[in-house]
């Protein structure tokens, strides 16, 4: 309905905004390069340690390195199971 469209010209609510957000993250990641080579091993070791205390899935631990200016940030994301 054109009359309604006219009032809800909220362009940022469409899928384009989502696309841009995804791209910004992806491109920043691509530009940063592959990151240090010990990441996969670190991820495996972390899972072992965490499993001593709580059972988590293989993909519950996410390790990534991000570049922010001169700083490298090691980001660890662990999803605990629903209890």
């Amino acid at each position: 309905m054109a009359l309604l469209d006219f009032f809800k010209q909220n362009r940022k609510s469409g899928s384009a905004a989502k696309a841009k957000e995804r791209l910004q993250i992806l491109v920043a990641h691509d530009r940063a390069g592959p990151g240090p080579s010990y990441l996969p091993q670190l991820q495996r070791d972390l899972i072992k340690v965490i499993r001593k205390y709580v059972h988590v899935d293989q993909d519950a631990v996410n390790v990534r390195v991000e570049q922010e200016g001169n700083q490298e940030i090691l980001e660890l994301n662990i999803v605990l199971p629903d209890s």
């Binding site: 469409g14 384009a16 696309a19 841009k20 491109v27």
Partner: peptide, 17 residues
């Protein structure tokens, strides 16, 4: 048209990236 509807990245969006 699709940019106006928010369905397509705009020129500014692409240039921003």
């Amino acid at each position: 048209e699709r940019v106006a509807k928010g369905e397509m990245l705009s020129i500014e969006d692409v240039q921003d990236i």
